Amino acid sequence: MNYTLQPDELVSDGIKRIIDTKVQRGIEHIDSDTDTHETVHEVRKRCKEIRAAVRLVRPVLPTYKRENVHYRDAARRISAIRDAHAAIETFDNHLEPAIEARDALDDATLSDIRTTLVTRRDTIAAEQNVERRLSEVRADLVDGRKRVSDLPIATEGFDSVAGGLRKSYKRARNRMQEAYDDPEFEHFHEWRKRIKYHRYHCRLLRRVWVGPIKSRRTELKELSDIIGYENDLAEFAIVMNEEELFTPEIREILNEISTAKRSEYHRQGRPLGERLFAEHPDQLVTRIGAYWEATHEYDPDP
């Protein structure tokens, strides 16, 4: 897998290979004839994957801040366009089915809601000039790629990834507690980001023990999706209310359903999160380190 550190390569070589590959994929997405909004989504994912790779070696990469900010800012160029499209997906996948199940609105009203969301997305894409934005992101990717071969990763072996792994896991663990102590949108949004970084790090480290790490990644993906749905519903409600989309009566119905669905996702995420983040960060790092040593020192055919 191209997003996995291999046992027979130095960590520095692997991280550089992975970043270079993801930059190239981002450029290919932009240069392809794929649907514009799918391109925006895929390019932002590539930037997140690159940032996760950089974060894994953060303590031993002196230029970490520069690289992280570079790809963060590249993705931000198209974030408003992506968010506008995500609002349509949230309506299609979560709100509309719930509305139909309750028979809360008629088909014509549902069609009008979706039309409003599509018009809003297309207006934002036109105002921001999505093609120009993607061209700017492409230039960012090309510029970042020039530095990949010279990334000054200072240490090899498990020591080079232990600190980044610990930080991503610890932050996800702490953000979970904050989210359930004070279930505001910002807290769950922050938790989701940290879950995804930890999931990416497990993907990067999957070869230390493929079976158990794959199982963990699967559960992290499920948790990330659950909290992601919660985030999407919260953002939909914020936009709908701030921009006064739809009539007050329709907003009231959508707010009620959104709140109920968010509570449902809160409940679904809690037991999964408690299991995935049960270990103290030091324990998790020690365990993954033991897997690393077994694979690199003793496995004749990793």
Rank of each mutant, 00 (worst) to 15 (best):
N2S: 09
N2A: 09
Q6A: 07
D8L: 10
E9H: 14
V11C: 05
I15Y: 06
R17E: 00
R17G: 01
I18M: 01
D20E: 10
T21H: 12
K22M: 13
Q24H: 08
E28A: 09
E28T: 11
D31G: 10
D33P: 09
H41E: 14
V43E: 03
R44A: 08
E49G: 07
I50F: 06
R51I: 00
A53R: 05
V54L: 07
R55V: 00
L61S: 00
T63W: 04
N68D: 08
H70G: 03
A75I: 00
R76A: 13
R76H: 14
R77N: 12
R77T: 11
R77H: 12
S79E: 14
I81R: 00
R82L: 14
H85Y: 08
A87G: 08
I88G: 08
T90N: 00
D92F: 05
N93C: 11
H94F: 07
L95F: 05
P97L: 01
E100S: 08
A101R: 14
D103N: 13
A104H: 01
A104W: 01
D107E: 15
D107C: 04
L110Q: 12
D112V: 02
T115K: 13
L117K: 01
T119R: 12
D122A: 03
A125D: 15
Q128T: 11
N129C: 05
E131C: 06
R132K: 15
L134Y: 01
S135C: 07
S135Y: 07
S135R: 10
S135W: 07
E136C: 02
D140H: 04
L141K: 03
L141H: 03
L141Y: 03
V142E: 13
K146S: 15
R147N: 10
S149K: 08
L151K: 04
I153K: 02
T155Q: 12
D159N: 10
D159K: 04
V161A: 03
V161L: 04
K167L: 14
K167V: 15
R173Q: 15
N174I: 11
R175V: 04
R175N: 15
M176L: 15
M176G: 09
D182A: 13
E186P: 06
R199M: 05
C202V: 10
C202L: 13
R206C: 07
R206Y: 06
R206V: 15
R207Y: 09
V208P: 07
G211M: 13
P212F: 10
K214D: 15
S215P: 11
R216V: 10
R216N: 09
R217S: 11
T218G: 11
L220F: 02
K221H: 12
S224Q: 01
S224W: 01
Y229D: 14
E230R: 15
E230C: 12
E230M: 12
A237V: 05
M240R: 04
M240S: 03
M240K: 04
E243D: 04
E244T: 01
T247D: 07
P248T: 05
E249G: 10
I250F: 04
I250R: 09
E252G: 08
I253R: 09
L254D: 00
A260H: 08
K261Y: 07
R267Y: 13
E274M: 08
E274C: 04
R275F: 14
L276T: 01
E279P: 11
P281T: 01
D282E: 11
Q283H: 12
Q283R: 08
T286M: 15
I288W: 00
G289L: 04
A290V: 14
T295C: 07
H296A: 05
E297W: 11
Y298K: 10
P302F: 02
